[in-house]
């Protein structure tokens, strides 16, 4: 044996023996790919800012968004306020900040609910198959055939008066409507990825070991089939925010005195040609929020989809 061979091996050893255990959980997998992606950082900053606005709006403004100064109604940006005042004399900047809460709440809660319902049903129909699959898939198809906006209008206008009692219930009303109509696409997605994972040998091996169905789902199927669901959920979160604004604009989603970008956009229509800033700022905030979540979804998809690497 040559000395060089020994030297080579011994030099290689410290690296080899060291702790360099590469994580392979879903989260760490994604994180490794995400942290080098500038799109991810842009969207993360946007989302962080909007989330902060939703939780502590007073960090951004001291003005009360419901303080109407009619004398200064329709004043332009710079006339004592940053974004001007709207037709009621409200401070548009404060309204935009406070409006984030409704949008973020609706987006996050709708997504959580749709993921829970859709993911659960998709998992059941994919895992059990047969009659369960047929039943759930057909039910999903029925919901799928209802246009989102039309369905939401009917759903919201048929809810009892009880839902208009307080802020939280008004928001829940919209959340329910959107989740109710939004789960089938997530269920389909989950079903297909479960069907893809289920015949893998490692699932069969777990069955051969006598693992219970809950164990198989928990430790084998779920971690390997969750990625597409996360991606689509993130992208659709932005979509739900936009739909919430649409419904509020149409006057059937959130209603004054609740503060929402959709409501403000709707109220600003009167000044479309004379005072466009009333329309511009809430629209800008809405677009940025939706953009943030959609960009995040794109980045997450790139991180989780092995085919794009």
């Amino acid at each position: 044996m040559t000395d060089a061979a020994v030297a080579e091996v011994t030099v290689a050893e410290p690296r080899e023996g060291g702790v360099r255990e590469e994580e392979r959980s879903l989260a760490s997998d994604a994180w490794r790919a995400l942290r080098g992606n500038p799109v991810f950082w842009v969207s993360a900053v946007l989302i962080a800012v909007f989330t902060l606005m939703a939780i502590w709006p007073s960090l951004f403004t001291n003005t009360d968004p419901r303080e109407a100064i009619l004398a200064e109604s329709r004043s332009r940006p710079g006339d004592g306020t940053w974004f001007g005042r709207d037709i009621q004399g409200y401070d548009i900047y404060a309204r935009c900040i406070y409006g984030a809460r409704a949008s973020i709440l609706v987006g996050v809660m709708t997504t959580a609910m749709a993921v829970a319902i859709g993911g659960g049903i998709g998992m059941i129909s994919g895992y059990l198959g047969g009659a369960w699959d047929a039943t759930f898939s057909r039910i999903g198809d029925i919901f799928f055939s209802i246009p989102l906006l039309l369905g939401a209008i009917i759903f919201l206008s048929s809810l009892p008066e009880f839902f208009n009692d307080n802020y939280f219930l008004v928001i829940m009303k919209v959340v329910l409507a959107l989740a109710f109509l939004g789960w089938p696409s997530l269920a389909r997605l989950m079903r297909s990825s479960v069907i893809q994972v289920k015949p893998n040998d490692y699932v069969q091996a777990a069955r051969a070991l006598g693992a219970s169905p809950s164990r198989i789902i928990r430790s084998h199927i779920l971690p390997n089939s969750l990625a597409p669901l996360i991606v689509v959920a993130t992208i659709s979160l932005g979509g739900y925010i936009a739909v919430e604004a649409t419904l509020s604009f149409l006057g059937i989603g959130l209603q004054p005195p609740a503060i929402s970008w959709g409501i403000d956009i709707s109220a600003a229509i009167v000044g479309l040609r004379t005072t466009p800033h009333m329309l511009f700022f809430p629209s800008l905030f809405l677009s940025l929020a939706v953009l943030g979540f959609i960009l995040m979804g794109d980045a997450v998809r790139d991180a989780l989809d092995p085919k794009t690497r």
Partner: peptide
């Protein structure tokens, strides 16, 4: 390559 769960140690 398919008989081991890629997400488990």
């Amino acid at each position: 390559y398919t008989s081991l769960n890629p997400r488990m140690t």
